[in-house]
Design a protein around this nucleic acid. Structure first.
Length: 164
RNA sequence: GCUACUUGCUGAUCUAUCGUUCUUCAUUUAUGAAGGAAGGAAAGUCCGGACAACACAGAGCACCGCAUCCCGAUAACAUCGGGACUUUUGUUGAGGAAUCAACAGAACAAGACAGUGCCACAGAAAAUAACCGCUUGUCUUUAAAUUCCCUCGGGUAUUUAGGGGCCGGUAAGGGUGAAAAUGUGAGGUAAAAGCUCACAGCUUUCCGUCGGAAGGCGGAAUUCGGGCAAACCUUGCGGGUUGAAAGUUCACGUAUAUCCGCGCUUAAGCGCUGCUCGGGCUUUCCCGGUAUCGGGAGGGCGGAGGGGUUGAACGUAACAGGUUCUGAGCAAUCAGGAUCGCAGAUAAAUGAUAGAGCAUUUACACCGGUCGCAAAAUCGGGGUGGAAUGACAGGAUCCGGCUUAUAGGCAAGCAGCUUUU
RNA sequence: GCCGAUGUAACUCAGUUGGUAGAGUAGCGCAUUCGUAAUGCGUUUAUCUCGGGUUCGAGUCCCACCUUCGGCU
């Protein structure tokens, strides 16, 4: 309970410092490059928009062949440092296998939980990546066979994120 | 009032904060504002369509699917509604019983007098029945009685009872089996048999009558050899194939390089499941020879193999559309009016947290004090608080059905128990 | 999204026109051996995924459901 409320408080405190930078991201895709990414702008915001989702099939194929992985209590984090065609330092995607969850409702539930946790806790990862000046493709896979609680998801995913 | 079952309907609300997706508008071009955002089954993918691509009219057979019958509904269906036949379950009534009648519900996959095949074990026999048994005739044989002959040993003939062989006749009887050759009674016969008759059953036809029809009721005539077609099959009806990963357009990008086969005119290829028939379309140029052949080039078709892309838009959200009212109809459904615009993602959008409230449960706590026919209780019910739980389940081109899953609530039907009048 | 298959003993599989469900391995017992393994002999285990239907009778035929697996850009 306390753990969760921490994030909310943090969000409230940082809210005032939110300001808009006029990124020189003019109009086309060439401008939205990683080099021009401004970390401060994202601080205190917990969005998860179009640019932050990993969608390219090509990169996903590379990810599973070359990528490294960390796992904790059923959650596996597969990641690969690669140049992305994106403004953000990382792109993430979530997956739950049909083998373990027969019904679509359950698969959606797992993915939604993982997405929620990633959204709340990605800022630390972004900071780290900006310092290192690299971009990361991330795939989360849940390999457990039972529906997890939110608390468990948070714990396991934080552990994985810290390992990177 | 409670409980159980069946059927139908329904399928939990609001506020705040953070976040997702689509549309519109604004601008500081990345944010803001406003609005929209899963189901009755979105599921299974079991049927039927719409839609799209592929083509040169057709016909026959194969192949596949459907199937009680009638009338209706529908774009269509293996669907839905109403009825009929048969079977069956429950209740009630009648009756000594078998059973019959009424009401309510459920099931129903054509045809076994076209042909082929199959029916384990048991049993005489499992399908054009003769094993035992019964029995006419005939041959033979044993015993007894009687007649005649006689050498008194026997012989001959007849009758009665029995055994055996042969030609036959018989489905009345035979402990089996899932199933036994219409059933019962009488006549009939050597013995028997629908062989004949009566009653009953079944098949088909005709007449009368009721009904719009399937069909019902009554009468007459006629026939009588099991089951299995969810065995082959026969009959009737229907069927082109592939599915939005269909397909159209644009962008990006490269190389159809190479190899094999076919083939260019009495022949061959193509033709949307296969084969056949028939029609149609296509088959270039050069050289030698000259009706058919040989060589070369060319492009064509099929296959192997290789290269590029892994993007965008359309299809794609206005309809066999929803809600509601009126009318027609027993109903399925149809007609007319009003009104609404109601998901549109593509590694795939609905979530998280907090609070309030709702429903259910409770060997929890407290209250109230007697609501339960009366009384009592550590019982049930009531109120407040606490705790727990909130069903099945998530769009992927779209509709109509079917099937399966489903907490709780509501309604109807039926049954049981109980209370009051 | 579309299409196709699979299910039988603890495990791996057989089971053709419907008629008492079988093999190998494993398990158990006995023999053999000083003892174990190997070997030999004997023996146990089945709701044929589940539910209906056809039939006198279904592992087998028909229908629906569940499970597991595969293919198609």
């Amino acid at each position: 309970m306390e753990e969760k409320s921490l994030h909310v408080e943090g969000a409230g405190a940082e809210k005032g410092s939110q300001f808009r930078t006029r990124g020189s991201l003019s109009n086309s895709s060439e401008a939205t490059t990683f080099a021009q990414f401004d970390l401060a702008k994202l601080k205190g915001r917990f969005t998860f928009g179009e640019g932050e989702k990993l969608k390219s099939k090509k990169i996903i194929d590379q990810l599973f062949t070359k990528g490294k992985s960390v796992s904790q209590s059923g959650f596996t984090l597969v990641y690969l440092s690669a140049p992305l065609n994106s403004f953000y330092p990382a792109q993430a995607s979530f997956s739950a296998p049909k083998k373990n969850f027969k019904h679509a409702v359950d698969r959606n539930r797992v993915k939604r939980l993982m997405r929620e946790v990633y959204r709340m806790n990605k800022f630390a990862l972004y900071e780290k990546l900006v310092q290192r000046k690299e971009q990361l493709a991330i795939m989360w896979v849940y390999k457990g066979k039972q529906l997890p609680e939110l608390e468990l998801v948070t714990k396991a995913m934080l552990y994985c994120l810290n390992k990177i």
